[in-house]
């Protein structure tokens, strides 16, 4: 397993993925936080600047964008690399349990996301100064909890996209994955609307729609869960469990997909 992880880390390094993450993530965080540092809030005519907590919210939301991008690229292009086309035959011959592969990819993706978090913290310090970290409003515990929550969610997205990439090809997955996440967001909004509006709960279609949504990865609730986590420091354990169940499901499906070498589609690079 360790050898597989080392091999995969070498691939990440040689493919220049690591440098792309550092550059892309630093640019997004520094530019975004610079913008936030110049924002002012006007409440009843009183103009004030944002506090460390709001600045940290902003940093974490920027981090969502870069983290999701990393999970997407890793899931669609990097995780399936060894399991597609002619290469898959040689990978199949490596004498290890096929379960080691998805577990290795989970670990390596977590490593990339950790680097992304590190870049976020460095960018935050660069823009707002080191003293903001010692501010009583800044909580390292909440930051750690947010990282854990994002990590689980992004790992599910990564593995889901990797499974789709192995099944339908990379280009198709890029669009299918985008549509799927978008549909889940819409479903999340609709489900919220139903649950908050008692009139609408009488609509007969509500039952199956909400039931279905509740079983899918809670993408539509992700932002709300994160908001609750940052402001109150509380996990939505129901959703954490659901994300974890989907992660285990995708590990099993990935293992099942690589049971035989996968022939490359003619349209794929």
């Amino acid at each position: 397993m360790i050898n597989l992880i080392i091999g995969n880390c070498r691939y990440i390094f040689r493919s220049r993925m690591i440098f792309l993450i550092l550059i892309f993530s630093t640019l997004v965080h520094v530019a975004g936080l610079k913008f936030v540092s110049h924002l002012t809030v006007s409440i009843q005519g009183v103009i004030s600047v944002l506090g460390p907590k709001q600045e940290m919210y902003a940093a974490l939301f920027l981090q969502l964008f870069t983290g999701l991008s990393i999970a997407t690229v890793y899931g669609i292009w990097m995780a399936p690399y060894a399991h597609r086309g002619e290469r898959s035959i040689l990978t199949h011959m490596i004498p290890i349990s096929k379960y080691h592969f998805p577990l290795c990819y989970l670990f390596c993706c977590a490593l990339l996301l950790a680097i992304n978090i590190f870049v976020m913290v460095v960018s935050y310090v660069f823009v707002f100064g080191l003293t903001t970290l010692s501010s009583p409003e800044f909580s390292l515990t909440i930051l750690a909890k947010t990282f854990v929550f994002e990590l689980i969610s992004f790992e599910v997205v990564m593995l889901g996209l990797a499974v789709s990439s192995l099944s339908f090809g990379q280009v198709a997955t890029f669009f299918i994955g985008g549509c799927f996440l978008f549909v889940l967001q819409i479903l999340g909004a609709i489900a919220r609307l139903f649950s908050e509006n008692t009139e609408l709960t009488k609509v007969s279609s509500k039952g199956w729609l909400v039931w279905t949504y509740e079983k899918l990865p809670p993408v539509g609730d992700f932002i709300f869960d994160l908001k609750t986590l940052i402001s109150e420091g509380k996990f939505n354990f129901e959703h954490v469990i659901l994300w974890t169940v989907w992660m285990l499901f995708f590990v099993a499906v990935f293992r099942w997909k690589i049971r035989y070498p996968i022939q490359q589609r003619s349209t794929e690079a």
């Binding site: 070498r10 060894a82 490596i94």
Partner: peptide, 21 residues
């Protein structure tokens, strides 16, 4: 099983080793 695969050497007709190595 992996144990059996460790005892087998296989050269497929067409195969591409990882190019980055």
């Amino acid at each position: 099983t992996p144990k059996l695969l460790a005892r087998i050497g296989f050269a497929p007709e067409e195969a591409t080793p990882p190019e980055y190595l």
